[in-house]
Design a protein around this nucleic acid. Structure first.
Ligand SMILES: [Zn+2]
Ligand SMILES: [Zn+2]
Ligand SMILES: [Zn+2]
Ligand SMILES: [Zn+2]
Lengths: 165, 165
DNA sequence: CGCCATTGTGTTATATTATAACGTAACTGA
DNA sequence: TCAGTTACGTTATAATATAACACAATGGCG
């Protein structure tokens, strides 16, 4: 059975990002309401920053952006890390381990483990979520109780190869 | 076609680790000789530390061990990181991204991308290398030029589940 | 409302992980 | 033995992340 992967999955493709952003924020609100969780102002701010960039951002980049947006106070690292922790625990964002960075999830609420294709030229990230990584499924079937999976493939996307060639 | 994964792959299994260690060190020497590279004393020391533990170790753990073994001098971080970089570039060790840690490769010289099962109870790591991750193959086939892959599945191994009841 | 319990935020300090920069030493090849 | 290169040693600092504790906001309940 061949896996079917949707490479058109937002990254590496043009799309109406304004709409994409609003849609994802609205889904996040919905999801938190359903789960009786508080998408507080700080958490929403952090999510919005990640939604706006649609690229992986370091915690300190997010921190800088928070401080830029709101110059009247000084916001410190724990604020950011706590918001990130919350958003990750609810599957609204993901951590890119190989870059110490965070990125908004493109289909929050889905059950499948995220898998990423990361272009190290344009820095775009495609999140694939058609099915769980085969190794994850296999491990689970063989008695290894999986609780987290990291799949990050780095390289150069087709677009960037054209430009370079 | 079902993938065939060898779960007996050193970790999660008892094995004659003394022999395992000597074998891997000898393979490393061989490999460096073939490639006309210098497995210097420092590099060998770092490799030996990783081979001895057979578990993921942080750079600073390795540093501490280096300094413990050789108390006459004080070894600083760059020494360790440079040795790690060399060993990684030659595929003698791997970095576990989700833990900021390093681990010796169990089949240096192989071409397949490493994939890890990590037990967060016993801290043992199984390195699988039967075949490349399907997503990697697929991405390459579709024009994404892969140069590095990270597959790290975390959970509780069968052994530890038994012990926990 | 007034109270308590819980959760989230703000603040300070510090831990952990990693690299820049630059000089010296060791090795390599001619 | 000399020049070119690679590896090592050293100091300082950057980048990433968390501990600990006080205060504020929220939500339930009498
Ligand atoms: Zn978008
Ligand atoms: Zn996602
Ligand atoms: Zn062994
Ligand atoms: Zn390996």
């Amino acid at each position: 059975m061949a896996r079917k992967t949707n490479f058109a999955d937002i990254a590496f493709r043009k799309h109406d990002h304004g709409r994409c952003q609003r849609q994802l924020l609205s889904e996040a609100k919905q999801l938190c309401e359903t789960r009786k969780l508080r998408l507080t102002s700080r958490r929403r701010q952090v999510l919005e920053i990640l939604l706006a960039s649609h690229q992986p951002m370091g915690a300190y980049d997010i921190l800088a952006e928070l401080n830029r947006v709101n110059p009247s106070v000084i916001i410190a690292p724990p604020i950011v890390y706590r918001a990130l922790e919350f958003l990750m625990s609810e599957g609204l964002i993901h951590r890119i381990e190989s870059r110490n960075a965070f990125i908004s999830c493109v289909h929050p609420g889905h059950q499948c483990a995220a898998q990423f294709l990361i272009c190290r030229d344009c820095e775009q990230v495609a999140e694939l979520e058609d099915s769980d990584p085969p190794l994850l499924v296999e491990a689970n079937n063989l008695g290894f109780a999986v609780d987290h999976s990291v799949v990050e493939i780095t390289g150069i996307c087709a677009q960037c190869q054209k430009h370079a060639g």
